[in-house]
Design a protein around this nucleic acid. Sequence first.
DNA 1: CGAATCGTTGAGCGAGGTCAAGAAAAGTGG
DNA 2: CCACTTTTCTTGACCTCGCTCAACGATTCG
Lengths: 232, 232
Amino acid sequence: MASLAIVAEGTTCFRPHQFLARENERPEAIFRIEEGWAYRFHLFGDGRRQITALFLPGDYCEPQWGLGQCITQPVVAITPVRTTRIVCQPATAHSAEYHQQLRLALAKTIERQADWLVSLGRRSARERIAQLLCEIYDRLHDSGRAYAQQCAVPLTQQDIADITGLTAVHVNRTLQAMRSAGLVYLQSKWLRIPDMNALRHIACCPEPAPMVAATERPPVSWPEMNEHSGRP
Amino acid sequence: MASLAIVAEGTTCFRPHQFLARENERPEAIFRIEEGWAYRFHLFGDGRRQITALFLPGDYCEPQWGLGQCITQPVVAITPVRTTRIVCQPATAHSAEYHQQLRLALAKTIERQADWLVSLGRRSARERIAQLLCEIYDRLHDSGRAYAQQCAVPLTQQDIADITGLTAVHVNRTLQAMRSAGLVYLQSKWLRIPDMNALRHIACCPEPAPMVAATERPPVSWPEMNEHSGRP
DNA sequence: CGAATCGTTGAGCGAGGTCAAGAAAAGTGG
DNA sequence: CCACTTTTCTTGACCTCGCTCAACGATTCG
């Protein structure tokens, strides 16, 4: 990742289950996660929960703030979390570099959410879980927190269910099936991925295996997409 | 909505099914939609499709550009679309007001996507469709394109299915059930919502009906959320 | 060493998917 | 304006993936 935020305003810490932000609050700062995990979620009156974002070390939480917007979905810590507070001020108060970085973080958030939408809308349970674990591994890897196909993942199966739109029971069964297929080992908060490519293939995150050289390829991903959309 | 973009660079138009942006392209401009509908989507090798964003008149498409990012999901027009091109340039080239507006659009996009995630992850077919139609009506209403509980909706049932993560067949059946319940009439690209509140209630978009006055309410949406997350 | 929380397993079920085929609209060209 | 084609909408029969409910170990934690 790029350089640090310019306008650091001191460190704030949170304990597991503590809120970084509550619904209907007007944020006075955004947080750069230095250490620990957190998530943004929606809770229904009847108990259904959906997690809509995962914040890992290095992420901005929540980058969309910075304008006087009101918070629509709360954020809570999973593990102990250490953050750098960045006070929200009129746009002029920060450096150009800072703005650039924030915009980049916003864009990244949108991209990740779009990927999750694809998962929730069109992938099977197995694919969703594979996809999620790949994403987590990659993100941790980028900040040097994963190596040798392994990393810590402090999520419960219920958490994974609420990310993937499944049931804790079904996550359990799917995870077991994947384990006995030798695809993924996720036990006591520790993840091991024997064959990254195999898992990525199941997640079908990158497009179907390219027939030509992987680097230069026409921007067409389906027959007859010259002028028309994917559905002929 | 707020004032117009400052750096308008001429008008560009698209015909139905034409791409506003293709995968793996590096955008040189973002579009402000002046008229017409478009959507962003992901297409799998096996034909599955998921729509991840809807662009309606007044929206920026795609606001996350503006930095040299590569496009990950294509965008195509549904109807004839008229846009204002805004050339991407180093951050300094645009006015402060323009940046503010763009950031706001980015934030709005994130919020909408988070709502869709909640739908896809945790809502029933009926709820998803109700939610979607409410959202569409509200957005069109804001730009003066909906009144008297009615508006044009140029989506096919297959489109609706690919937004809501369902099957065209099941969208059809659900829509029929809602129609015969007098909830929603969606025929030949025209939407009529006899009772907006009833529909919103089904979508359960705002939290469960507040017991107290709707305006001032504690930021707690579930028992015992003082210090801990939603799941005790 | 209790008390939660979390993971695991089984039995049964139901919302939504699949497949297939026909009716109704909407384009298209003459 | 009319045949013709293509797309969209409907309907029926059947099936399955993932959900529900419930109980019981296994961990974790105070």
